[in-house]
């Protein structure tokens, strides 16, 4: 896989907090990662781990009462956290595009597909409607929608879920962005459709050199798609590295737990491992390591201070005092 030294997008110590009456929820608390052109980064975590908020933070789309309170988002060297709304608007859907989780909800039900695609082109390109419509049709064709010309004048409810997600992907591809942030785009779809869409996304991004940040809770998707993976827990990246290394030899007990809880064919009959306990509330994170209450390795030191980021191997990071022993996993 092509590795360019200058990162296309670099997120540094990003902190996004939700300031509510009930207290401050640290949804994203010091997240750092980077993506190179053409690279596919998997951002893995459970519900509430802050992975979606991370995605929205990059585009400055965090809703009230959420706010980016610290860190930087560097896109081609430009800090987007400091950028104004006008600049962000220029980048959104143009240089950095996003795909959402639920295709039933992302398309406006009362507007036709062509309206929703043409406006996306014309928000960023000085082209007439006919040209914008031609581009929209081409994009629909590229994501594998049959008879794109006819489908353009349809309304969203006339599409199936998979087709709607293809439309959303086509909209994301319209302006040939450098980065696509995909927030669990296949979770709501059937498995066969999921596979098709994964395959097509991989192909399209490979062709154009677009970087892809794939947010998911599904390790199987990551293993087949991503080059590198970041595992998030309670607003922090607890482990990151090349996808094969992390999945074969997990270092953080949480990663190991996630891998262990994936049903797999070669361990049939064996009891499926599970991570005990629940994700902690973001309003009341425990002191020290947020995972310690559920961690089989936790010691007294884990309660005192959150583990700092370490580099156990080249290209990998880890936040843990008591890494998982590979032999125990097997």
């Amino acid at each position: 896989m092509a590795r360019v030294e200058v990162p296309l997008l670099r997120v540094e110590q990003l902190q996004t907090h939700f300031l509510t009456q009930a207290g401050v929820a640290r949804a994203v608390d010091g997240v750092t990662f980077e993506v190179a052109p053409g690279e596919v980064l998997g951002l893995v975590g459970e519900s509430g781990s802050g992975k979606s908020v991370t995605g929205f933070s990059i585009l400055g789309l965090v809703d009230e009462p959420g706010r980016i309170v610290g860190g930087r988002v560097l896109f081609e060297g430009e800090n987007l956290v400091a950028a104004g709304e006008a600049r962000l608007r220029q980048l959104r859907g143009n240089r950095i595009a996003m795909i959402f989780q639920d295709p039933m909800m992302t398309l406006n039900p009362v507007l036709r597909i062509d309206t929703q695609m043409i406006e996306a082109v014309r928000a960023h390109r000085r082209v007439d409607r006919a040209e914008a419509r031609r581009r929209a049709r081409d994009a629909l064709g590229r994501v594998g929608i049959p008879a794109p010309e006819e489908r353009l004048s349809a309304y969203p409810h006339q599409f199936s879920g998979g087709m709607r997600q293809r439309v959303a992907i086509a909209i994301a591809l319209l302006n040939e962005p450098r980065v696509i942030i995909a927030d669990e785009p296949t979770t709501a779809l059937d498995v066969t459709i999921q596979a098709q869409i994964l395959y097509e996304m991989q192909k399209l991004c490979g062709e154009t050199g677009t970087a892809l940040i794939w947010i998911t809770h599904d390790l199987a998707v990551v293993s087949g798609l991503a080059d590198r993976v970041c595992v998030m827990y309670a607003g922090r990246i607890v482990e990151s590295g090349p996808v094969d290394a992390v999945l074969d030899r997990p270092l953080h007990p949480y990663t190991a737990g996630l891998i262990g809880s994936v049903p797999s064919r070669n361990r049939r009959g064996a009891r499926l491992a599970q991570i005990p306990g629940m994700t902690p509330s973001l309003f009341a994170l425990p002191s020290g390591c947020a995972f310690r209450a559920r961690c089989p390795n936790a010691g007294e030191d884990c309660a005192r201070e959150a583990p700092p980021e370490s580099v156990p191997e080249v290209g990998r990071t880890l936040r843990c005092y008591h890494p998982w022993q590979a032999e125990r996993a097997s």
Binding site: D63, R89, A97, L107, P109
Partner: peptide, 29 residues
């Protein structure tokens, strides 16, 4: 609060287009 409004913003539309097309047309019903 709907996803499609956020998606419209993620497309880089101006806020007036989001409000007067995407939101307005839905509340007119």
């Amino acid at each position: 609060l709907q996803d499609y409004v956020k998606f419209a913003r993620a497309k880089g539309l101006s806020s007036s287009r989001v409000i007067y097309v995407h939101v307005l047309k839905n509340i007119m019903i």
